[in-house]
């Protein structure tokens, strides 16, 4: 497994994660590929149910049954330079990666911290798990982490319980926790969705600065195209468990090579000019129709039923492959040339 380009930290290849639900199978992630370079932020966008969280949890190997990785590889470059396939890594080795090398921030800041332990304990716990330091040193580091995420009166806040903090503060604590062991890759699954706009902007700002400081890579899952414009280098658009388009962020905002992405961006007057300003207005545009059920995908392209550009071939198997529509710009559409 030496085929990773030198600066690639994570390379997901043809990942398939399915849920066996009785006789039906939910193909929540079905053949997803993308890679993340060192220091790069890759955004994963798509409507609800497109498989963003399942992809994230697969990389962390935190899927709850009946979810299972049934195929593909998740190549990851460990800190010592060795290459592993996370999909096949024994659980014990995976535990050394989790938290220490790949950390995750979850969608729900209000409930992701344990209500019975102080935030100081929860951050120290992770440091003590992975590093040969004493309690006092771990606590000192926990305090520095709280300072890093700009929580005022960090020393005192260490002894606070989560319920004594606001949602924004808790999400900062989650970030402090995730960064405590300076991971190589941070997976942030909609870390700001539950927060109000001002706090959201602060958190994004914080993540960007921390990324520059620590030099980590970020896999950023979001619904919010304003956030994408602000933070991402590369964008992966997912639909019904597959990647339908992928391109560098500026290029994607200029020109979409898939009708789905085009639909998502349709009602944004000028995304690139608007970026940075309150991301709120850049929410995904509702496209008429519904995301197909991943337990019963239609023949051909999964988006065909909602697609304004649909032609006969679109509803026939095999569906369109993911091809380079332009240099560094992938599209899974038969008609990408016409777009």
């Amino acid at each position: 497994m030496t085929e990773l380009a030198a600066d690639v930290v994570l390379q997901v290849e043809d990942l398939r994660t399915h849920f066996e639900l009785g006789r039906r199978v939910a193909k929540s992630v079905d053949g997803v590929s993308f890679s993340v370079r060192r220091g790069e932020t890759v955004a994963v966008v798509g409507e609800s149910g497109s498989g963003k969280s399942v992809t994230s949890l697969s990389i962390m190997r935190l899927l709850a049954p009946p979810g299972r990785i049934i195929g593909g590889r998740i190549l990851y470059r460990r800190r010592d330079g060795s290459m592993v396939d996370i999909a096949e890594l024994p659980e014990k080795a995976m535990r050394a990666v989790r938290g220490r090398e790949i950390a995750m921030i979850f969608q729900e800041p209000m409930t992701s911290l344990n209500p019975l332990f102080t935030v100081g304990d929860q951050i120290s716990e992770m440091i003590l798990l992975h590093e040969p330091v004493g309690r006092a040193a771990a606590r000192a580091r926990a305090k520095r982490m709280l300072e890093l995420v700009e929580i005022p009166a960090a020393e005192r806040r260490l002894d606070d319980y989560p319920h004594q903090m606001s949602g924004g503060m808790r999400q900062r604590v989650m970030i402090a926790l995730a960064l405590a062991c300076t991971p190589s890759l941070l997976i942030a699954d909609e870390p700001t969705t539950a927060l109000d706009v001002t706090i959201q902007a602060q958190i994004l700002d914080l993540l960007r600065r921390l990324q520059a400081q620590i030099g980590m890579s970020i896999l950023f899952v979001t619904h919010n195209l304003g956030v994408v414009a602000e933070i991402a280098h590369e964008v992966v658009v997912m639909y019904a468990g597959r990647v339908v388009e992928q391109a560098p962020v500026t290029r994607l905002f200029e020109r979409q090579k898939h009708p789905y992405t085009r639909g998502l961006l349709a009602c944004i007057p000028d995304a690139s000019r608007d970026r940075g300003a309150a991301g709120e207005r850049l929410r995904l545009n509702p496209i008429p129709g519904n995301v197909p059920n991943v337990t019963a995908l239609p023949a051909g392209c999964s988006f065909a039923a909602r697609c304004p550009y649909v032609v006969d071939v679109c509803t026939k198997d095999p569906g369109p492959p993911l091809v380079a529509a332009e240099v560094a710009h992938l599209s899974r559409c038969w008609r990408h040339e016409a777009l």
Partner: peptide, 13 residues
């Protein structure tokens, strides 16, 4: 099934 249990797992314990 609570979120903080998943968080605990995500720390690598």
């Amino acid at each position: 099934g609570d979120d903080y249990v998943r968080t605990a797992r995500s720390k690598g314990m």
